[in-house]
Every structure is written in structure tokens, then in C-alpha cells.
């Protein structure tokens, strides 16, 4: 059972990662650098619980804030540029962060430990081992999955509310046509930066949660492939509505676990799925129209139940 709880927690982490891509995707910006914020969050979160004695929740929050700060650093200069510059900048930033994480060493010696394993904290290429918060505090994988999913729930509710607000409409306008958005007085760059920074915050939290499941992280966990998979969740699930990333991340994490034989080929499958989706259903599995149709179907059902009122 604890295996499935771990899968559940990892699924939650992936859902968060998908939403972090989705946040800037709403304004039409494609980021292939979420791995950087995920990695920053993982390192910061793990350092806080392991080295500074923080509790999990505050470590996750601080990790999110650290990642958000990093995304301000990338977003402010590059989101003003048009076209492909932003995407390339995120790629460059992600790789830069990976190189830095791969080379950082701080922390303190571990009292007990075998030879060659006596360091607490990130140790360069060896990585960051012994992130033992869950074990030390007697949190079972089941409880952890609940913690992760409650954070996911908060994020999903937040997106649900945003989706129905003016903000989402503005972001969609920017996605559709920046010139139009600017002409009706939308501060385009500001909105794009805010969306991207929110994405960075979510990615940071998700990274911190991830570090605590794995108990061992290294710079090479945060290669660009992670960002591409995160983007795949959104693209396959659907980038037009908030249900897309949720569906994409859950399906693409859980299905390979259930169907063992395809697990080995899951990356090929992701790749193939992206191509197929782009060819035949560029909106992703759930499009805005699907949501509207289902919404009105539900509403119709609700109306049918109510007795009709005569005027």
C-alpha cells in the first residue's frame, strides 16, 4: 500500500509541476525551464528541514518563495521580449541552475555515517542525501500523500477561482493577441511576469515536496527533460482550461504505473502522444469547448430536476 501512497504523492507533485507550466501558458508563454524552479525549491526545502530544523510546511512555503524570487530574476528581463526569446531564456536558466546545483556544497558533517557518506547537505555531484524529515518525524507515506494532495487542492481551487475571474480573461487576451491587449490598456509585461512568478512559486513548492519523498536529490535530477515532461502534461492534458494540466499530470503519471509493460517506454509514449495531440487535437485532451459543453450539460441536468416555474 505504501507504494501506492508514494505514487499518489508523486502524482500530486507532478500535478503541481503541470500547474506551474500552465500559469504562464495561460498568457501564451511557453516555459521549458520549470525544472530550475523545481530544483531550487527542492534544494531550499530540503536544506531548511535538514540543516535548519524547519518544519515541513514552512520549508515548503519558503522553497516556493525562493523559487518565485528566481523566476522574477528570469521573468522580468525576458518576458518583455517577443517571440522565442523567453522560451530560450528559460532553457538557458534551467541548465545554468542545474550546473550550479551540480556544483554546490554546503552543510555540515554527519555524526554517524559510513566512510564516504559523512556529509549532511548538498555535496556537489554526489547530491543531497539523507533528507530524512518524514522518517524522523514519523510521517507515513499515506499521511504525506494527504499533505501533498491538500496543497494540490489549494492550488486547484486557486486556479478554479482565477479561471473565472477577470485575470484569466486578461491573460487569455494576451495569449490571443498582445497588440490587442496592449491597445485596451493591459500592462502586458506585468501580467506575464506575475503569471510566471506564480508558476515559479508552485514549482518551488512542488520541488520541496518531491525532495522529501525521494530523500535523495542531485543536480542531475533537474535536467531539462523534467521541464519537457512538465510541459507535456499541459500540452497533452490541454492548455486552454485548468482541468487540462490536472488530467494530463494524473493520467501520465498513473497509467505507466498501472500498465507495467509500457513503463519502460513511457517517454517514447509521451513524445508520441505530444505529436499525435498536436496533429489531431492541438487543444489537448480537454479544450475550453469541452468544458463549456459539459458545464452546460450539467446545468441542464440540474434545471431538469427542478420543477419548471410558470411565469
Amino acid at each position: 500500500m505504501s507504494y501506492w501512497f508514494t505514487i499518489a504523492a508523486l502524482t500530486g507533485v507532478n500535478v503541481l509541476l503541470a500547474y506551474s507550466v500552465y500559469a504562464s501558458f495561460m498568457s501564451g508563454q511557453v516555459s521549458i525551464g520549470q525544472a530550475a524552479f523545481f530544483g531550487v525549491g527542492a534544494y531550499v526545502g530540503a536544506s531548511l528541514t535538514v540543516l535548519a530544523g524547519f518544519d515541513l510546511m514552512s520549508a515548503v512555503l519558503v522553497a516556493g518563495i525562493a523559487a518565485a524570487a528566481a523566476s522574477v530574476f528570469v521573468g522580468v528581463p525576458t518576458l518583455r521580449l517577443k517571440g522565442y526569446h523567453f522560451t530560450i531564456a528559460t532553457v538557458a536558466f534551467a541548465e545554468a541552475v542545474r550546473v550550479i546545483l551540480h556544483n554546490t556544497k554546503y552543510g555540515r558533517p554527519r555524526a554517524s555515517g559510513n566512510v564516504g557518506d559523512q556529509w549532511l547537505g548538498p555535496d556537489g555531484a554526489t547530491g543531497f542525501r539523507h533528507i530524512g524529515y518524514l522518517n524522523d518525524n514519523g510521517i507515513s507515506t499515506g499521511q504525506y500523500a494527504v499533505i501533498v494532495w491538500s496543497i494540490v487542492l489549494v492550488v486547484v481551487v486557486a486556479f478554479f477561482l482565477v479561471e473565472r475571474s477577470r485575470i484569466a480573461r486578461i491573460l487569455r487576451t494576451i495569449e490571443e493577441d498582445e497588440v490587442v491587449a496592449r491597445s485596451i490598456g493591459v500592462p502586458v509585461a506585468r501580467y506575464k511576469v506575475i503569471a510566471f512568478v506564480c508558476g515559479g512559486f508552485i514549482a518551488g513548492m512542488s520541488g520541496a515536496l518531491y525532495a522529501h519523498i525521494l530523500t535523495f536529490i542531485s543536480g542531475n535530477d533537474f535536467v531539462i527533460h523534467l521541464s519537457t515532461i512538465a510541459l507535456a502534461f499541459v500540452v497533452i492534458g490541454g492548455g486552454q482550461t485548468m482541468w487540462g494540466p490536472l488530467l494530463g499530470a494524473v493520467l501520465l503519471t498513473v497509467i505507466p504505473e498501472i500498465l507495467r509493460p509500457i513503463r519502460e517506454f513511457r517517454i517514447e509514449l509521451f513524445g508520441l502522444l505530444i505529436i499525435l495531440v498536436m496533429l489531431f487535437r492541438p487543444t489537448g485532451m480537454i479544450s475550453a469547448i469541452t468544458v463549456r459543453r459539459w458545464g452546460s450539460a450539467l446545468a441542464a441536468k440540474a434545471r431538469a430536476k427542478r420543477p419548471t416555474q410558470a411565469f
Binding site: E268, L272, I274, M278
Partner: peptide
């Protein structure tokens, strides 16, 4: 595949090439 079949949006083309990248590398 990526530029002729998928043509409506540069983002979609990029995503398609991303898919090809992932699949090829893993193969």
C-alpha cells in the same frame, strides 16, 4: 510532421518537435 502537418501555431510546432526530441532520445 512538425512544420507542415502542425501549422496553425508556432507553439504547437515547438511542442511537436519537443515530442519528437523526447521520443527519439529515449529510443
Amino acid at each position: 510532421i512538425a512544420f507542415v502537418l502542425v501549422r496553425h501555431d508556432a507553439r504547437f510546432s515547438m511542442a511537436a518537435t519537443l515530442g519528437i526530441w523526447m521520443a527519439l532520445e529515449e529510443l
